[in-house]
Amino acid sequence: MTPTVPADLTAPAAPPDPWALAEAALRDPGAGWSLGSFGAIAEFRQDPGEAATVEGPLIRATARGAIRLERRDDMVPLAWETVSPRPHRWSQGLALCLPEAAAGRPRRKVLTELGPDADAIRPADRQAILFDMGLDQPQVEFCVRSADPALIATLRETVGRSLFEAGNPAMPAILAAHPHRIAITPLGRCEVFQKIGGPETGGVSPPGPHTHLLPRLLAAGRTHSANTPIPAGLVPCAMLHPASPVSGPMGEDIPFEPARFAAFQALLAAWGPPVYVETKARVWAALAAGEAPGAFAAPSGRLPRAALRNALRQSARVAEAGPPAPEGLGAWLAAFDAQGAGRETAGEDEVEEHA
């Protein structure tokens, strides 16, 4: 029997141009972007038909936020998938990485005034004052920007102090004034103009561009989530989140989208971790051949185990689009992905660490 798998995982003869892909993604309302580290993230997303106020190669600005990417020859793309804590779902992304030696930014530990933001994406913002928040992160300067004299005065009075110092008025002033938040990495910058999630937003981040600043995660001192399989020696400096085949922009469930699934599998074939791609292909071939789960040599290691579980979940979701599910898929799920079979809550490999 010729194996039939949910998508072609054969690497293309010529990998796609990652910068051309990035340019297209900046105009795709289904895609999102994030720049930052583990615990400090700025995200850019746009609605269908949302007008651009600034637009150009690798640049996009709307009334709610903006992003600009910096083309570099030493950028290394890495496509990845992780297991979701929600049954029958998974997460995906394309990390734009730099070698560790090229990924560093100034690591300021205290609030620091940087002066007028001459590099602002919108010309109207270039006289506003930029302050580094002093988060001491390896690949990102996380900043606030304001033209509000009262906020600027408060921040200038607290320059040289940690934002998290007891009694420091800077953070309450920032939360009340909602200044622009700016994340700057060696691969670009993301600017968020919307309000900070809090009492004025119902306690949640608003749809579209927004930021997350989570001191508990910052304390881990990591450049990225442990679930994201970035190889040693590389640092993610921008993250593309292509349109998901299983979830919408606010994390809501959606009917399975075969075209989105196939599009990302092509990226995974070109830039995914080889052991992950190979494990998925091996699982799909075994399913197509009618093998029983007991005859399958289960892989060891976190990444191959994730590949096994996602291959099974994806087989189940692909079946929703028309082709029947492989015979025995339920037994495979019960053997290797009890949560995907609807019998468990999240465990070690399913916990999503989102900043």
Rank of each mutant, 00 (worst) to 15 (best):
182 I>N: 01
182 I>Y: 01
183 A>W: 08
184 I>W: 00
185 T>H: 06
186 P>T: 06
186 P>F: 11
187 L>C: 05
188 G>T: 04
189 R>Q: 14
189 R>L: 06
189 R>D: 02
189 R>T: 08
193 F>W: 09
195 K>G: 09
196 I>E: 11
196 I>K: 09
197 G>I: 10
197 G>Y: 02
200 E>Q: 14
201 T>D: 10
203 G>F: 12
205 S>G: 07
206 P>A: 09
207 P>H: 07
208 G>V: 09
209 P>Q: 06
209 P>M: 06
210 H>E: 07
212 H>R: 14
213 L>I: 15
214 L>W: 12
216 R>H: 13
219 A>K: 14
220 A>L: 15
220 A>C: 12
220 A>N: 14
224 H>S: 15
225 S>C: 03
226 A>D: 13
226 A>G: 15
227 N>H: 05
227 N>I: 00
230 I>N: 06
230 I>L: 10
230 I>H: 04
231 P>A: 05
231 P>Y: 04
231 P>I: 02
232 A>R: 11
232 A>Q: 12
233 G>K: 04
233 G>H: 07
236 P>R: 02
237 C>N: 05
237 C>R: 01
237 C>T: 11
238 A>K: 03
239 M>Q: 13
239 M>F: 14
240 L>D: 03
242 P>Q: 08
242 P>D: 07
243 A>L: 05
246 V>C: 08
247 S>D: 07
248 G>S: 01
249 P>S: 02
249 P>N: 02
249 P>H: 01
251 G>E: 04
251 G>N: 03
252 E>V: 08
252 E>Q: 15
252 E>G: 10
252 E>D: 13
252 E>I: 09
252 E>C: 05
253 D>G: 00
253 D>R: 13
253 D>K: 12
253 D>C: 00
253 D>E: 07
255 P>Y: 10
256 F>G: 02
257 E>Q: 14
259 A>M: 02
260 R>N: 09
260 R>E: 11
261 F>A: 05
261 F>E: 04
